[in-house]
């Protein structure tokens, strides 16, 4: 699978006024370092609460996914192997060789993970970009979509009232920016 270039953000995509976005690429290594304990905790919790999702991933449990929130100064590296889970933030110039890459605005990606947006629809609209192994992407999408409840809310709840407040703010911002279809 080829990925001939590093695509630029779509002109339609605007930076959310998040602190992370304002930090810029130079601060990315530090941000990634600070985020790591948080990401490790999140992925561990998700895996323990939703072990069924690994079944739908099949052989792509060992695929390296790069999930690239275009409006943040770093990408996420996910390897959903239940025996050795990896979720880490990586500066863009240190991304691993990806089996599959998924790019979009951060809030859109959050909505997709939470099954609040339809992956095909945002692919049709070109708000989501997929490169690399398409089957890996389809399997990840279907695995996440079969999960009950809200991953975002579960994650927010891990951090108590402040976590829930941040999530509520992010969702409001998504609705304001994109005319989102939150149910």
């Amino acid at each position: 699978m080829s990925e001939p270039d590093t695509p630029a953000a779509s002109p339609a995509i605007t930076l959310p006024a998040t602190g992370l976005a304002r930090l810029g690429a130079r601060a990315a290594p530090l941000v990634c370092l600070l985020l790591q304990p948080l990401l490790g905790r999140i992925v561990g919790q998700v895996a323990s609460r939703h072990p069924e999702l690994f079944d739908r991933l099949g052989e792509h449990r060992t695929t390296d996914y790069v999930i690239d929130p275009l409006d943040l100064p770093f990408a996420l590296h996910l390897r959903p192997d239940p025996r050795a889970l990896v979720l880490r933030a990586v500066p863009r110039d240190r991304e691993p060789v990806a089996g599959a890459t998924i790019r979009g605005r951060f809030l859109l990606l959050l909505q997709l993970v939470d099954a609040q947006e339809d992956g095909d629809a945002v692919f049709f609209s070109r708000d989501l970009t997929v490169t690399g192994n398409t089957e890996a992407v389809v399997r990840l999408r279907n695995a996440l979509d079969d999960m009950d409840g809200s991953l975002a809310e579960e994650t927010a709840a891990m951090f108590g009232a402040p976590g829930r407040a941040v999530l509520a703010q992010l969702r409001r911002r998504y609705e304001d920016q994109a005319g989102g279809t939150l149910a």
Binding site: S2, E3, P4, D5, P11, F123, T129, V130
Partner: peptide, 30 residues
């Protein structure tokens, strides 16, 4: 299936190595 992005933002969709469509940067896809 493979999606290939070009430097100008256009995207080609390919099946089994055969290009079956090429979408301009802002064109809706299928």
């Amino acid at each position: 299936v493979e999606y290939v992005r070009s430097a100008d933002g256009s995207m080609s969709s390919c099946l089994g190595g055969v290009t079956i469509d090429r979408f301009a940067p802002d064109e809706k896809a299928g």
